[in-house]
């Protein structure tokens, strides 16, 4: 039963992905993410986090099951689904010979918004923490954190119901990491449904409403973050990994 004003935006239904070589990347995965909700998938490399995101983006077809955005299947109507999705990758790579504003302009138009003014671009860039003096600088001179901020600005400008973040805090310094969590909460407050894959337990604990620990394409655990605050998520994560004979990735731990 959903609360008032809650609406399922992202949904995985028995989502399964088997590769030709027999590797099972996703095994009957089920979850729902509503508006105003952040869902964090924690797990080591090869757990299936990026595969889940790729299926939502229709860069991969599921073997069975479905990934839906606003009730629309990502592999049946990918273009409709993509109108409601924004994506920010681990290492945001934009066009290096374009300035931040030019990159924003191109990707915003690509996202279907043709009426955005330069002032609005500047406003969003300021909001994500990029000072005005770098707006006209070419991306090739940007650090990873700055590019990440540009990527988030693009996602904000696309103004979709759902945003997918793939390892967004990887390689960010603590200040940038803090700013990112602040932005994530802003987006949540604006009504976005956020699916985030991460290794970073602390950031996940800080921002997410629901946390799932993932391994070999399955959720080993999926809990409301509020219930986990009392437990020690870190020890829970290590415990789950150890029980299943796994080496945890301890980035951020």
């Amino acid at each position: 039963m959903l609360e008032n004003n809650k609406q399922v935006i992202l949904e995985a239904i028995n989502l399964t992905k088997k590769y030709d070589d027999g590797v099972v990347a996703l095994d009957n995965l089920n979850f729902q993410i509503c508006n105003n909700e952040i869902f964090a998938m924690l797990g080591g490399n090869g757990a299936g986090k990026t595969t889940t995101i790729n299926i939502f983006l229709n860069l991969l077809e599921p073997t069975s099951g479905d990934a839906k955005v606003c009730g629309v299947s990502s592999h049946i109507e990918p273009l409709t689904v993509k109108q409601n999705l924004a994506y920010v990758s681990e290492n945001v790579m934009l066009y290096p010979n374009f300035t931040a504003l030019q990159n924003l302009d191109f990707f915003t138009q690509l996202g279907g918004r043709l009426d955005v003014s330069k002032d609005e671009y500047r406003e969003v860039l300021m909001r994500v923490g990029l000072a005005e003096q770098v707006h006209n600088k070419k991306l090739k001179s940007f650090s990873k954190g700055m590019r990440q901020k540009c990527g988030i600005a693009i996602a904000i400008l696309k103004d979709t119901k759902a945003i997918l973040f793939d390892e967004p805090t990887s390689g960010l310094d603590p200040k940038a990491g803090y700013e990112f969590i602040r932005l994530l909460n802003d987006l949540k407050d604006e009504g976005k449904a956020v699916l985030m894959s991460t290794h970073d337990i602390f950031r996940a604990k800080e921002a997410a409403d629901t946390i799932a620990i993932m391994n070999e394409g399955k959720f080993l655990m999926k809990e409301k973050a509020s219930t986990l605050f009392d437990k020690d998520l870190e020890s829970l994560y290590m415990q789950y990994m150890a029980v299943h004979g796994l080496k945890p990735t301890t980035e951020g731990v």
Partner: peptide
């Protein structure tokens, strides 16, 4: 290789 392709294709363009 450089990265923007995935971001481009995450948009609703055929």
């Amino acid at each position: 290789e450089k990265g923007p392709l995935k971001l481009c294709l995450s948009n609703a363009i055929p």
